[in-house]
């Protein structure tokens, strides 16, 4: 299989980047996108060129580390998939692929395809937890949680923190990420007590990080590898206003 790659190259946070073109031949359709980049890097290194810097760890769609924009698709042209779960069989022979990092003011590019997503960690730190210390917990079955509630909480908690929602949003809003955590914890009895304060603190942090406002285009839900629902954004607003 043959592809022409146009990859965003940027030396560091302070420099200006641009696309560079790399024709690649002899590719296997079953290769994943990161494996294709491994292959490219091997060639670049042998030629004495700087390899493409990109992050990718678990390569099974759960760690949230990878994630690029491929021909305008956030993460992947496939539905509910991460970049590492995208295989070359998703493309046609002789296709041209434009590969670039997620773009958002709050996710500065560090090098090539690597971005800084620590803003997400600070949003969690602001209140994305239940304030229980080790040792305080009551017997697990003393907190009954309905089957459907547990399932719904799981759906929200499934977020992998990749940032695709921010990257696809025209406002670079982190509402889906933040809303998912607020909703996950607020719908469980253990998390109710702190729900309002949590929503306030996390939303404030989200704003302080420079993420844009949500105008409910629902684009985030479409690209989310875990299909986290925009209903969580509604729950966030509810907790924030009336929680």
């Amino acid at each position: 299989m043959k592809l022409t790659l146009h990859i965003w190259r940027q030396k560091n946070a302070g420099s200006k980047g641009n696309f560079k073109t790399y024709p690649l031949e002899g590719l296997d359709p079953n290769m994943s996108v990161p494996e294709m980049l491994d292959h490219l890097n091997e060639i670049l290194i042998r030629k004495g060129e700087d390899p493409v810097a990109f992050e990718s760890d678990c390569r099974e769609g759960i760690c949230g580390q990878c994630g690029f924009v491929i021909n305008g698709h956030i993460q992947s042209p496939e539905k509910s998939a991460t970049t590492c779960q995208t295989h070359l069989r998703s493309f046609n022979n002789d296709d041209e692929l434009y590969i670039e990092p997620f773009r958002a003011k709050s996710f500065p590019v560090k090098k090539d395809l690597c971005i800084d997503r620590t803003a997400f960690d600070r949003i969690i730190g602001a209140g994305g937890y239940i304030g229980v210390n080790t040792g305080q917990a009551p017997e697990a079955n003393s907190i009954l949680i309905g089957h459907d509630t547990a399932e719904e909480a799981f759906d929200a908690a499934a977020c992998i923190g990749c940032g695709a929602c921010v990257a696809t949003c025209k406002n670079a809003s982190a509402a889906l990420f933040t809303g998912a955590k607020i909703a996950h914890l607020a719908m469980l009895p253990q998390g109710k007590l702190e729900a309002k304060a949590r929503a306030r603190a996390m939303v404030e942090q989200m704003d302080a990080e420079g993420f844009g406002a949500c105008t409910f285009t629902r684009a985030c839900e479409v690209v989310c590898p875990q299909s986290v629902s925009v209903a969580n954004i509604v729950k966030m607003n509810k907790e924030f206003l009336w929680g």
Partner: peptide
């Protein structure tokens, strides 16, 4: 298990 449930880990539940 108690600790994880208290933290909000959404373990599978019966009806």
């Amino acid at each position: 298990i108690d600790q994880a449930v208290a933290q909000g880990v959404p373990f599978a539940r019966e009806y």
